[in-house]
């Protein structure tokens, strides 16, 4: 694994977001939706508590829609334009390319997330929140975004069509989130054995993110997202290898 190559691929990909209006449109919409959901859905003011729980708790739902928009181009565009032939005949391994592209998308998401800092300033102005909790929630949200991105990157490698990559990624992300949602679990718990319900719920982003969004960092939740990212990226590399020339 050549760290230089990962860095160069990441840098190129990251700058690629800013070569078109995509990055700016995305960031503006992300900030609008995050703000809207914090204040109107999460009732930031009415809760009367100095924390950012309303902000962070909405992230799974925002990410379902927004993260696939970041990940859809990663491989589909390379395959469509044929530049994948160029990339894969440079002295770069598939894993370096997969990781470099993933890190670029992740860094971009992190940037978008950081640009919500006015909220942090607001809450610190209005009261005295536990900034440790906010920092932990930030890390957790970023980690979950990585999970969504890894899923999206892998799906992007299966097609030349960015729209297909987007739609399929949204659906798969939705499944991963909903697996822990009350209604879905109730549906299963009425007939399925307890073990199965636990397995389904343990695969859910919600289950693992819930604690994190309250600032509780549990190693098991961290490990869940880390291994989720690793597995999807591994699958991503296998798919790129198998289908790059199609």
């Amino acid at each position: 694994m050549n760290m230089h190559n990962i860095w160069f691929i990441m840098k190129r990909e990251f700058n690629g977001y800013f070569a078109t209006p995509v990055a700016y449109v995305f960031i503006v919409i992300f900030l609008l939706l995050a703000g809207f959901s914090t204040f109107f859905v999460g009732n930031f003011f009415d809760r009367g508590e100095a924390d950012l729980y309303p902000f962070f708790s909405m992230h799974p739902w925002l990410y379902i829609l927004l993260i696939p928009a970041i990940s859809m181009r990663l491989w589909a565009e390379e395959r469509k334009s044929g530049s994948i032939e160029l990339l894969m005949t440079l002295p770069v391994s598939v894993f370096e390319a997969v990781i470099g592209k993933f890190l670029a998308a992740w860094a971009f998401t992190g940037l978008a997330l950081l640009l919500n800092f006015p909220l942090w300033i607001t809450v610190n102005y209005l009261g005295s929140p536990d900034n440790g909790v906010i920092f932990a929630s930030f890390l957790g949200s970023l980690l979950m975004a990585g999970g969504f991105l890894a899923i999206g990157a892998c799906i992007s490698a299966t097609t030349k069509n960015q729209v297909i990559a987007f739609v399929v990624s949204v659906v798969v992300s939705l499944i991963f989130v909903l697996a822990g949602y009350g209604i879905v679990l109730d549906f299963f718990s009425s007939w399925a054995p307890r073990v199965l319900v636990d397995v389904i719920s343990s695969f859910s982003f919600l289950t693992h993110y819930d604690a994190i969004s309250k600032g509780v960092i549990d190693m098991r939740d961290m490990l869940y997202f880390a291994s989720l990212i690793a597995i999807w990226l591994f699958a991503n590399a296998l798919i790129v290898n198998a289908r790059k020339a199609d």
Partner: peptide, 26 residues
């Protein structure tokens, strides 16, 4: 290697593109 159709990263400039290739080529 010049692949058929000379694919490149369309939104880059030749300058940025060649620099990227140079980076990856060490």
């Amino acid at each position: 290697y010049l692949p058929e159709g000379a694919p490149a990263y369309a939104d880059m400039t030749p300058e940025g593109f060649l620099k990227f290739i140079a980076d990856v080529r060490g």
